[in-house]
Amino acid sequence: MTAHAARNVPALLLGLRDEGFSGTVRVSGHPGGTIHLRNGLVGAIETPGAPTVTSALLTSGRIDDEAWLAVCATEPDVDRLGGHLVAAGLIGAAELEVVCAAAVFDGAFAMALSPPGSWELSDREPALVTEPGVEPQQLTEETARRVALLSRSWGAPGELTRVRPVAVTGSGPRRPGVRLTRRHQGVLDHVNGRRTPRDLAFALGRGLYAVMLDLIRLEALHLVRWDTRAAPDSRPSTAPRPSRTPPPTDAPAPKVVPLPKRRPRGGSPGHDAAPRGGS
């Protein structure tokens, strides 16, 4: 693969798809991340910006720690861990695939919210992957869709990841006839004025994108407000906030997610190349 010829990460993944590449793409940046490919398809994405499959299963309580550790001790090959989780009756095969695929989409979305840095190709590394994997083109299109939806509903999604929502009590009329779903109530219960949407996603073991949509909904119901103080290592935005139209209470979960783009800086296959903006 002529990695230096790809102008951004989506283009790189499309090229690797054509080659049926199995291996790892490490993307630097904030948050950056690791993309695991199997036969050219995206099997898993790990990034500090969004919960992984492991986090989603354990933090949510879907699988308890002891059972997880017992299966890991039986099957040290992470690539085959999913089959052992299903065989042990800890989770259904279909549910596991949904969780793994959702983590791929969410990871790509999280990586797209900040300009990526360079990338590097390396050998295949073990990972709990979705089978058979996600098409790079589908991932890119879904990520773009998510970014566009949040931009229309709230403003720059990258800025939303840095705000610290505060629960509102006794002010602002809640929309008549609207009851909070268990999902929305769970998010509201974890809002404390210190956690960012990313913090909430990790605390709940839920996708970053879904948590951001829920926060927008809660703001529309006057149940949260945004703390105007900038989060550490971030600068407050001076851009005007567009009017927000809240998304449906229970919008259906999207099917796929995209990745970062960036102009390459050159390099040879398997070495650092340049980035792209927004996944």
Rank of each mutant, 00 (worst) to 15 (best):
residue 134 V to G: 01
residue 76 P to G: 03
residue 195 R to H: 09
residue 108 A to T: 09
residue 37 L to V: 00
residue 231 A to W: 02
residue 82 G to M: 07
residue 232 P to C: 14
residue 244 R to C: 06
residue 198 R to N: 05
residue 20 G to K: 02
residue 138 Q to E: 10
residue 276 R to G: 14
residue 234 S to F: 10
residue 128 L to W: 02
residue 49 G to H: 01
residue 32 G to H: 13
residue 60 S to Y: 01
residue 99 V to Q: 08
residue 54 T to P: 04
residue 259 L to E: 02
residue 269 P to W: 03
residue 149 L to R: 07
residue 193 G to W: 06
residue 35 I to L: 14
residue 164 R to V: 02
residue 34 T to L: 14
residue 175 R to Y: 11
residue 38 R to V: 09
residue 16 L to G: 00
residue 252 P to V: 13
residue 105 F to D: 00
residue 10 P to Y: 02
residue 166 V to W: 04
residue 210 A to H: 06
residue 16 L to N: 00
residue 116 P to K: 02
residue 226 W to V: 03
residue 151 S to L: 12
residue 151 S to K: 10
residue 8 N to G: 01
residue 78 V to P: 03
residue 170 G to H: 11
residue 107 G to N: 07
residue 62 R to I: 13
residue 239 A to P: 07
residue 190 H to S: 15
residue 9 V to P: 00
residue 81 L to E: 03
residue 71 V to E: 06
residue 268 S to W: 04
residue 39 N to Y: 05
residue 253 A to H: 11
residue 210 A to S: 09
residue 45 I to M: 09
residue 111 M to R: 13
residue 139 L to Q: 01
residue 113 L to T: 04
residue 135 E to R: 07
residue 12 L to W: 04
residue 211 V to I: 13
residue 94 A to C: 07
residue 273 A to K: 10
residue 2 T to L: 07
residue 191 V to W: 05
residue 248 P to N: 01
residue 247 P to T: 01
residue 73 A to H: 05
residue 18 D to P: 04
residue 272 D to L: 12
residue 231 A to R: 05
residue 24 T to H: 00
residue 275 P to D: 12
residue 129 V to H: 06
residue 277 G to Y: 08
residue 271 H to C: 09
residue 86 V to A: 06
residue 95 E to H: 02
residue 48 P to H: 06
residue 268 S to H: 08
residue 167 A to P: 13
residue 83 G to R: 03
residue 138 Q to F: 13
residue 102 A to Y: 07
residue 137 Q to F: 11
residue 237 S to T: 14
residue 61 G to K: 07
residue 89 G to E: 14
residue 228 T to W: 08
residue 272 D to G: 14
residue 177 G to V: 06
residue 2 T to N: 10
residue 200 L to R: 12
residue 152 R to G: 11
residue 18 D to Q: 08
residue 207 G to L: 03
residue 37 L to D: 00
residue 222 H to V: 01
residue 15 G to N: 08
residue 256 V to S: 05
residue 202 F to R: 14
residue 123 D to Y: 10
residue 95 E to D: 06
residue 24 T to W: 04
residue 205 G to F: 06
residue 126 P to Q: 07
residue 30 H to K: 14
residue 120 E to V: 01
residue 161 T to Q: 15
residue 94 A to R: 09
residue 153 S to K: 07
residue 140 T to R: 15
residue 151 S to F: 13
residue 116 P to F: 02
residue 229 R to C: 15
residue 144 A to D: 03
residue 195 R to D: 07
residue 113 L to E: 04
residue 171 S to T: 13
residue 75 E to W: 00
residue 100 C to A: 14
residue 47 T to R: 02
residue 96 L to I: 09
